[in-house]
């Protein structure tokens, strides 16, 4: 068996709407090694969440259509699985934590019931054992087990997110997809959740896809970084490679436009001009060419391919094509 728990290969997803075809994912490919955390970064519309939903088999259809590609989970294609099989995998082997903890819990059930439902469904145990297990999970994320009897509204935002994490981990999933799990939280609470997730990763050896737009959070938690733009991966590599030696002009731009908390300067920030291309009318060549400070003629005509720049570092940009490695 390969070292990769999950392999996404040349995934294409489009949404066929009345206004036209929205090309959300255009050849997304990356791997998730066992026991590692992938930081999937990108701006709104980069296709981060759609990719995650595809892995879970949750792309709403219609209007969503997966036109081509493979998502191999333990060597088996998720896209070809029956609904029944998918249902058994979801929540058990693959589970997901959503961005907004306020809306991902059901307000009318006690969290003990919600948590034990998941456990009963997948572990074939009775309610009592399941509740017991749910209580254990709550304690792991730092919430007293008596609170199983509370309703979601009785928890603060940070605690609700911890409940979601506990629920996501309750069946010992092999793959955890965390979609912006700390974006809606305050920084001190975010720090708590990140510490918690780091600890759990060591304890359970879970592979994680951590979706976020905050590079600071990625630096904390990820082993590998995947940078997405307009539905494809434009650069990927180990945390060290991407953070110390970014190659793609977009990745460089992302780092440059962050205000530096350690700097006294308040001069103008570097910007990436313009905005993400309209997914209904994607440019022919490189999707970033219109905003790229280093764009060449070829960038407008031909889409670049993945180039391996170093071990564990791939970039999709014409600047590095054909051995013309520009430093």
């Amino acid at each position: 068996m390969s070292d990769n728990l999950l392999e996404i290969k040349d995934l294409h997803i489009e949404f066929r709407t009345f206004d036209g075809v929205v090309k959300a994912i255009n050849g997304m490919s990356f791997n998730v090694p066992r026991g590692k955390t992938i930081g999937l970064v990108g701006e709104t519309g980069a296709g981060k969440t759609t990719t995650a939903l595809a892995v879970m088999g949750l792309v709403p259809s219609p209007p969503g259509v997966i036109t081509s590609g493979q998502i191999l989970f333990e060597g088996e294609d998720v896209l070809k699985m029956s609904n029944l099989k998918l249902r058994n995998i979801r929540g058990d082997k693959i589970s997901m934590i959503f961005q907004n903890p306020m809306t991902s819990l059901n307000p009318v059930y006690r969290i003990g019931k919600q948590m034990s439902d998941v456990i009963m469904m997948h572990q074939n145990v009775d309610r009592k054992t399941a509740e017991q297990r749910a209580g254990d999970m709550l304690e792991i994320v730092g919430i007293r087990r008596e609170r199983l009897n509370n309703y979601p509204h009785e928890f603060s935002g940070g605690m609700k997110q911890r409940v979601c994490i506990a629920m996501g981990l309750s069946c010992n999933p092999q793959l955890l997809i965390a979609d912006e799990p700390t974006t809606a939280l305050d920084v001190t609470i975010q720090a708590q959740i990140l510490e918690l997730m780091k600890g759990l990763k060591e304890k359970y050896n879970t592979s994680t896809i951590f979706i976020t737009h905050a590079l600071g959070v990625v630096a904390e938690i990820a082993d590998y970084v995947v940078v997405a733009y307009a539905g494809m991966v434009i650069e990927q590599g180990s945390l060290k490679e991407i953070f110390t030696d970014p190659k793609h002009p977009y990745t460089k731009g992302l780092f440059a436009c962050l205000p530096d908390i350690d700097s006294e300067s308040s001069g103008a920030l570097k910007v990436i001009p313009g905005a993400m291309p309209d997914p209904m009318q994607l440019p022919v060549g490189c999707k970033f060419c219109k905003r790229c400070p280093e764009a060449m003629k070829i960038c407008y005509m031909k889409e670049p391919e993945d180039i391996e720049i170093a071990e564990e570092h791939k970039v999709r940009c014409h600047l590095y094509q054909m051995g013309s490695k520009k430093q």
């Binding site: 920084v187 001190t188 609470i189 720090a191 905050a214 904390e220 945390l239 110390t244 908390i261 350690d262």
Partner: peptide, 25 residues
Amino acid sequence: KALLSAVPIAKYNQQRQRIILKGDV
């Protein structure tokens, strides 16, 4: 101090002593 220490920094291997506050506001 706790607030400043909790800000994640977008740099590789930047260790800063982090103060994790207990509980919620």
